[in-house]
């Protein structure tokens, strides 16, 4: 039983660390902007948060710096893609290399330095005493708990509010919103910055959450997994949660199976997450199920008033 608990709680921690970025990217793409720089922004969030933690020993301040970093990078990306209408693929790649390189450079002085300051696991009274579920769901850190609220709020926002309706329209056909008197540019700026802030929090999950250190490039591809999960989940935060949990579960499954099924080559376990992804991808977005995917119609298309 302890093994199942550790497996599921490992999966949850893994899932949350990619879900912030995934939900951020979902909002960004719903608004019609594809941000390929997830990994770079995550690393920037991870390093600035960790640097602040080391130098000030103040976790709240570190978290604010993470948010601020995300916002600044989001603003830059929004300026490039919305105001200048540059190609989003190129800008995303630029963001990626910029973030990866700059974070490595900034972090030189804190690499290998222990902050000993992170989001500690807090057991919630009563709830954490529930057998099995308690230790899995209610002995986690604040970033995980916050996610319990973010997913339903995001779902409600996108599908049940007037703003959500506009957000969906923004990604499908921004000209309609424009004709309706909405400020397309301001809205896109807002969602890009929100998305980027969420990506930076994902970085904080890595450097100030489950593990507590900085090393260059430490997110090791999580940004790409988050990016892939968005399409995988059909731009739906709830499916994104399921996808992230599935991916986290299978990633962590290897260690348990190595003990109980020692005769299976471990490389098979390492390949499982990717096999599962391919299968789930086919089931979720395959043509045999739907005529068209949920991909926003105007994704990655800059909005230009003149050519509407």
């Amino acid at each position: 039983m302890t093994l199942i608990i550790s497996l599921l709680s490992g999966a949850l921690v893994y899932a949350v660390s990619v879900m912030y970025a995934g939900i951020g990217e979902t909002f960004s793409e719903r608004a019609g902007i594809m941000n390929l720089g997830v990994e770079g922004i995550m690393l920037m969030g991870a390093v600035t948060g960790y640097m602040t933690a080391v130098s000030t020993q103040n976790l709240a301040l570190a978290f604010l710096v993470v948010l601020f970093t995300g916002a600044v990078l989001g603003l830059v990306f929004a300026f490039l893609t919305v105001t200048l209408q540059s190609d989003q693929t190129v800008c995303g790649m630029a963001m990626l290399t910029f973030g990866t390189g700059l974070s490595g450079f900034l972090g030189k002085n804190v690499a290998g330095v222990a902050a000993n300051l992170k989001f500690e696991n807090i057991a919630i009274p009563f709830l954490s005493d529930i057998p099995v579920i308690g230790p899995i769901l209610f002995q986690q850190n604040l970033l995980v708990y916050a996610m319990y609220f973010i997913v339903p709020i995001a779902m409600f926002y996108i599908y049940r509010t007037r703003y959500g309706l506009k957000l969906r329209a923004l990604g499908e056909n921004p000209a309609v919103l424009d004709a309706g008197g909405e400020n397309v540019f301001a809205m896109r700026y807002g969602y890009i910055i929100f998305g980027s802030v969420m990506m930076a929090i994902s970085g904080a999950c890595v450097s100030l959450g489950s593990t507590n250190f900085w090393s260059s490039g430490m997110t090791a591809g999580k940004g790409w997994i988050a990016f892939a999960l968005v399409a995988f989940s059909s731009w739906n935060p709830l499916y994104l949660t399921l996808g992230a949990l599935l991916f986290g579960f299978i990633s962590c499954l290897g260690s348990t199976l190595q003990i109980y099924l020692p005769n299976v080559p471990t490389e098979i376990y390492s390949a499982l997450p990717y096999v599962a992804t391919v299968i789930a991808f086919i089931l979720a977005t395959g043509n045999f199920r739907k005529k068209h995917t949920a991909q926003p119609e105007s994704l990655a298309v800059p909005y230009d008033r003149e050519s509407r």
Binding site: S6, G10, T211, A220, C252, S255, Q258, S270
Partner: peptide
């Protein structure tokens, strides 16, 4: 000595999970 493999040179989640699994055993 029970060994657990990460099958990666660098994977924070799997390395941590392997350690956790050993401890749980």
């Amino acid at each position: 000595v029970q060994v657990l493999w990460a099958d990666s040179w660098y994977d924070l989640d799997v390395e941590g999970q392997n350690a956790k699994t050993l401890i749980d055993n």
